[in-house]
Nucleic acid binder design. Structure first.
Length: 417
DNA sequence: TCTGGGGTCCTAGGACCC
DNA sequence: TCTGGGGTCCTAGGACCC
């Protein structure tokens, strides 16, 4: 059956949200991602900043060199999440089949909504206006019979436009575009494809086993099919909105200066573990896999993990494993740039083989819920488990004085209405 | 200019099983 | 004289996306 997908992509989302809260930023070169002298990259750049050659994923220091007068902002993740929820609410007015693909973009399955909203272009126009009115944010919309084509179309429609690729014309629309425009083709794949003379999506669409001179793997086969204008592989084979629960939950931290002190790294690990486990509990999930990530100062990166016999969401259990992995794998004395904790193979509470929980376990769970509640009311620093405290103290005093308690008022939670 | 943080999916080798 | 072979789990690494 012929389907109709919308891909809705917010224009310069982080920057636009910042402008909402501080209209004086409008028209200025604005960079969201961190201070100009920090380790980090550009998360979003205003159109004025882009004129200087600044783009996302560029190191902050380079952005500062290109445009010293730009306004550098750390950003406000809570505000972005809040606006993202508002965006989702608008989209849900048009169809329940909405899937947020990231904080600022979504896919809508609009198949069969003509009776309700009229033809696709009319619905898109209304969606565009509703989004403006209810969030004060601009978006771009791509419409097509395949999600991958809708996504490329919204990209071409930017900024603040709508592009409808008519059924039957998908391949024609894609063919002249640079192969990098196709989702899934990054720098590395582009280089590989270049060796086979592929420069445009049309070139990729024509690849066969014969022209390639070798066997085609599943990944490349899916890529070729996408280049021909059809959804293929992985997520593209599932229904919109089928995914709700996360498949992994992780936190990581890059030290502002490379770290070689064991105690400092262990307390950071404790802190990261607390954040991860807290989110596991929020989602009512238990993790069966725990992974440690280490990146040394030369950027070589290692992950070491373990599968648990029994899934968990408890700080102490996860931290014990993380510690063992760290002690068993960190080369003593070698300077560490980044450290991280990841959980995966997540299972819902109900899937747990519920042996009768021991009284001790029940008490522990109650205690964790109490800790989470305290943190809700008084901030993350209110309650600390294990050795997370000293890391927090270090970060706040030496590396980030602005974050000292009292100096940085925590965002107040809105009372429930 | 040294390169964030949070994710998803794919690959590939070895173990194990039928 | 040597070759089975497919499915699934586990682990680690890597490409890619916003």
């Amino acid at each position: 059956m012929q389907r109709t997908y919308f891909h809705v992509d917010m224009d310069a989302f982080f920057v636009s949200v910042e402008e909402l809260y501080d209209p004086s930023l409008k028209g200025k070169p604005v960079v969201v991602g961190g201070r100009a002298d920090q380790r980090g990259v550009v998360a979003a750049a205003s159109y004025a900043a882009r004129k200087f050659g600044i783009h996302s994923a560029m190191p902050l220091r380079e952005a500062a060199r290109l445009c010293p007068q730009a306004v550098f902002l750390e950003g406000h993740p809570e505000r972005y999440r809040e606006l993202s929820t508002a965006v989702r609410r608008v989209l849900m007015q048009f169809t329940p089949a909405v899937e947020m693909a990231s904080i600022d973009e979504a896919y809508l399955d609009m198949t069969g909504t003509e009776r309700l909203h009229g033809p696709a272009m009319k619905a898109a126009d209304l969606l565009h206006k509703t989004m403006q009115r209810e969030t004060q944010l601009n978006c771009s919309i791509g419409i097509a019979s395949a999600r991958v084509v809708a996504k490329v179309a919204s990209d071409q429609a930017k900024p603040n436009g709508v592009l409808h690729v008519l059924p039957g014309l998908e391949a024609n629309f894609l063919a002249p575009l640079d192969v990098r425009r196709l989702p899934g083709v990054g720098k590395i794949t582009e280089q590989h494809l270049r060796e086979y003379g592929v420069r445009t999506i049309g070139d990729l669409a024509k690849l066969t086993k014969a022209t390639l001179g070798r066997k085609i793997g599943d990944g490349l086969a899916a890529l070729i099919e996408k280049a021909q204008g059809r959804d293929a592989g992985g997520w593209y084979d599932e229904e919109i909105g089928a995914d709700e629960e996360p498949k992994s939950i992780s936190h990581e931290h890059t030290f502002n200066r490379d770290e070689r002190d064991e105690a400092a790294m262990e307390s950071m690990l404790a802190r990261l573990t607390e954040m991860v486990c807290r989110r596991l509990r929020e989602h009512q999930l238990h993790a069966r896999k725990v992974q440690l990530k280490l990146r040394y100062s030369d950027f070589t990166t290692y992950t070491r993990g373990r599968t648990l016999e029994r899934p968990t969401q408890l700080d102490a259990e996860v931290l014990e494993i993380v510690r063992e992995l760290f002690r068993g794998n960190w080369e003593k004395g070698r300077a560490v740039r980044l450290i991280g904790v990841q959980t995966s193979s997540l299972e819902a509470d109900s899937e747990q083989i519920e042996l009768i929980p021991s009284a001790q376990e029940t008490r522990l769970k109650q205690a964790m819920n109490a800790v989470d509640a305290l943190r809700d009311r008084f901030g993350e620093s209110a309650v600390s488990l294990a050795s997370g405290m000293s890391a927090r103290f270090r970060e706040r005093t030496h590396e980030n004085p602005a974050a000292l308690p009292g100096k940085e008022p925590r965002a107040k939670r809105k009372p429930q209405e």
